[in-house]
Deep mutational scan, measured.
Amino acid sequence: MQYKLVINGKTLKGETTTKAVDAETAEKAFKQYANDNGVDGVWTYDDATKTFTVTE
């Protein structure tokens, strides 16, 4: 399945996608991506759209 990440950071904004077997695996990949880019915020997930959002 394909999952999307929407980033609403202080210095980084945008979107990225990943393919993963489940939401938990996608979340780990997205959190690593956010961490690598210095984004630390509040996470939400919408199962209907398979979209994670992180807001600083």
Score class of each variant (00 low, 15 high):
K4D: 03
L5K: 00
E15W: 14
L5F: 05
Y3F: 12
N37E: 07
A48S: 12
T17N: 08
T25M: 12
N8R: 11
Q32A: 12
D46G: 02
A48F: 11
A29P: 02
T25K: 06
K4M: 08
Q32C: 06
K4L: 09
N37Q: 13
T44I: 08
F52L: 01
G9D: 03
D22M: 04
K28L: 11
T55A: 05
V21Q: 11
D46E: 07
K28S: 08
T18N: 05
K50C: 05
T17E: 08
Y45I: 02
K28M: 10
K4F: 14
V54G: 00
T11I: 11
L5C: 07
T44H: 11
D22V: 03
K4Y: 14
Q32P: 02
E27C: 13
G38H: 08
T49C: 04
E15Q: 10
K50S: 06
Y45K: 01
T11Q: 10
T53K: 05
E56K: 04
K28I: 11
E56G: 05
G38S: 06
D46A: 04
A29D: 07
T55H: 08
A48H: 10
L5S: 01
Q2E: 13
E15V: 13
A29V: 15
V54K: 01
E56H: 06
T44L: 07
K19Q: 14
Q32V: 10
F52V: 01
L12F: 14
A23V: 12
T55M: 06
V42R: 07
V6C: 06
V39R: 02
Y3H: 02
G14S: 13
G14N: 08
I7Y: 07
K31A: 05
I7F: 07
E15K: 07
T49F: 05
A26Y: 01
E24T: 11
V54T: 02
K10Q: 12
Y3K: 00
F30N: 00
D36N: 11
T44Y: 07
Y45E: 00
T18M: 15
V42A: 09
T16P: 03
T17H: 11
K10W: 10
D47N: 09
A29E: 11
Q32K: 14
T51C: 05
E27A: 12
W43G: 00
T49Q: 06
D36V: 10
T55E: 08
K28G: 06
T18F: 13
V42D: 09
I7G: 02
F52K: 00
G14T: 15
T44A: 09
K13M: 09
Y3I: 02
D47C: 06
M1A: 12
K10C: 12
G41K: 01
T44S: 12
